[in-house]
Design a protein around this nucleic acid. Structure first.
Length: 513
RNA sequence: CGGGGAGUAGCGCAGCCCGGUAGCGCAUCUGCUUUGGGAGCAGAGGGUCGCAGGUUCGAAUCCUGUCUCCCCGACCA
């Protein structure tokens, strides 16, 4: 087994952070842009994002939410209206202060002091405030509610430390914003969005997650309650992959989103917001990637099957290409996961082996290498990306009769989707410790700096305020954070290992990205 | 924002300490031979050494500033 010559130069075991960077580079997903914290998303990475967009957008629309678009720039005064919101974002904001450049006399350009804006504009870090302003115009009567809006957009947060896809200064996302007549209706929407994210993550990304409520210290600035989906990466750390917030009436008060109820009284709306971003792609890399690069779940793979003709640059190529084209045509008539198969015939010149390793690193689910003998004998040579190596350390090609392969291809694509999800779920569940009942046990578990043991699920008394701050500080000493209170957890048992009070619920505790 | 490391050909790097006019591997191109599983040999092309100043007869190399990236911390829907 050790003779396997992997496609990447860094393994996950040797250096997980370097491996993550290497996958992104080698799979040609994204690259440096030269602008601090901002990345160029290359076709393969953007193709995955387009798949995520398409499948998520269908779910959003199915829930009756309509897409719209709001400005990139937000007047500073809009933002200043909700105090907690300002506090949460003030330190990481890009601000536009001028509208013109002039020559500095040294061959460069500087902002023209004469062209200073009356009121600075901030580049949106999130759009609650602008969308709130629109909602206050759109909502007049109880008949206008609920108001369900979403936008696909880019946002900017000037983070101190950035990592490709996981935390970039600019990122792409969708943000849903809704207004409701009362708390109950808004909570239903908040939890609907959370469940949409949970099922999307499991079904489309094949990434198992726990959906639950964040502790009060982790709430979105200005929110009354914040919910998240949390995924476990292969290094055992947690990734918050999506959030849904119940905002109460605070934002409605700031933006004056009011309606006249059935009794003729003015009332404040209850609002929600929810979003997922390009961070999900980082989650897919760290959930499914291996030492040969990315493995893309078929549901979000820009191409699910790549056909590589073994071109010889001779007279036989024409017949070989005709066979491959005919194979492609037969495949795209089939459907898997509810959509036609996405199949690419890679006719570019070059050696088939080199092209093969490029596709392996990109993680395309099925690779077909077709030579002259396959064409003559009505055969295909099939390589499953999720089962790349044989026991003897050779690449795991399976020679199959063309007809047999065609009959099974769609099922095989669906099997890869299932298999990636099953593997990720098994790995996650094997790395959750549930037997911790005291702080001393928790500390002992994380005592070894070299070996991070994964997540801990434990029971606590859900302290708040100063008492919670103490708990957070104790966990911080172990580099741990509270991820969420899973909605489907077993009932809490015993006493809280932090406060000694009777436990009321279970939480996940983990290191996080 | 603090500490550490780095920026030299498309990619990965050496050269820097001790200034003398640009090098290696992979990739690319050409030719020949191979080729059913990550080919071999020979030859060729490609770089204002991150950027801006300074010192010097001369700077990839020394000095100052600045931008960007990576790691650790702080911060962080």
């Amino acid at each position: 087994m050790s003779q396997i010559r992997h496609a990447l130069s860094v393994t996950r075991d040797a250096d997980f952070a370097a491996w993550y960077q290497d996958v992104i580079t080698e799979a040609e997903m994204a690259e440096e842009s030269g602008v601090r914290g901002c990345m160029v998303i290359r076709p393969w990475g953007y193709g995955i994002w387009e798949r995520i967009q398409k499948l998520m957008d269908e779910r959003i629309k199915a829930a009756g939410v309509e897409n719209c678009y709001f400005p990139l720039f937000i007047p500073l005064s809009f933002f200043a209206k909700e105090a907690a919101h300002v506090d949460g974002f003030a330190k990481e904001m890009a601000v536009v202060t001028h509208h013109r450049l002039i020559a500095d006399g040294k061959g460069g350009l500087v902002p023209d002091p004469e062209a200073k804006l009356e009121e600075p504009l901030i580049v949106r870090p999130t759009s609650e405030t602008v969308i709130g302003a629109a909602m206050s115009r759109w909502v007049q009567s109880w008949r206008d509610l609920p108001l369900l809006a979403n936008q696909w957009a880019n946002v900017v947060r000037w983070e101190m430390r950035t990592r490709m896809f996981l935390r970039t200064s600019e990122f792409l996302w969708q943000e849903g914003h809704t207004a409701h007549a009362d708390r109950a209706d808004a909570m239903i929407e908040t939890l609907r969005a959370l469940e949409m994210y949970r099922s999307f993550s499991e079904e489309a990304l094949a990434m198992p997650v726990f959906a639950g409520e964040k502790p009060e210290n982790e709430r979105f600035p200005g929110a009354v309650a914040t919910y998240s989906i949390e995924a476990m990466m292969q290094d055992g750390k947690a990734l918050q992959a999506g959030t849904s917030h119940y905002l109460g009436t605070g934002f409605a008060e700031a933006a004056e989103i009011r309606y006249q109820d059935r009794e003729g009284q003015q009332a404040l709306c209850h609002t929600t917001s929810w979003g997922v971003s390009t961070r999900m792609i980082g989650g897919v890399i760290m959930t499914h990637g291996d030492d040969d690069g990315l493995r893309v779940p078929p549901a979000i793979a820009p191409q699910q099957i790549v056909i590589l003709p073994m071109l010889r640059e001779d007279d036989g190529d024409a017949a070989l290409l005709a066979y491959c084209e005919e194979l492609r045509a037969a495949l795209v008539k089939q459907s898997a996961l509810g959509e036609p198969l996405r199949v690419l015939l890679d006719k570019r010149p070059g050696k088939a082996t080199q092209k093969r390793w490029a596709w392996v690193k990109k993680g395309v689910p099925l690779i077909l290498e077709i030579g002259g003998r396959d064409a003559a004998g009505a055969m295909v040579s099939v390589l499953r990306r999720d089962r790349l190596w044989r026991e003897d350390a050779k690449v795991n090609f399976a020679a199959q009769a063309r007809e047999a392969f065609l009959a099974a291809a769609a099922a095989e694509i669906e099997d890869i989707q299932r298999s990636l999800h099953a593997d990720a779920t098994a790995r996650r569940d094997a790395n959750i410790e549930r037997g911790v009942t005291s702080l001393a046990e928790l500390e002992a578990l994380f005592a070894d700096e070299k070996r991070y043991p994964g997540w801990v699920e434990l029971s606590w008394s859900r302290p708040g305020g100063a008492e919670l701050e103490e708990v957070v500080a104790k966990l911080k000493a172990l580099k741990l954070t509270i991820r969420n209170t899973p909605l489907d957890a077993a009932p809490a048992t015993g006493t809280c290992l932090f406060t000694g009070q009777p436990a009321v619920e279970r939480i996940f505790v983990a290191r996080a990205y």
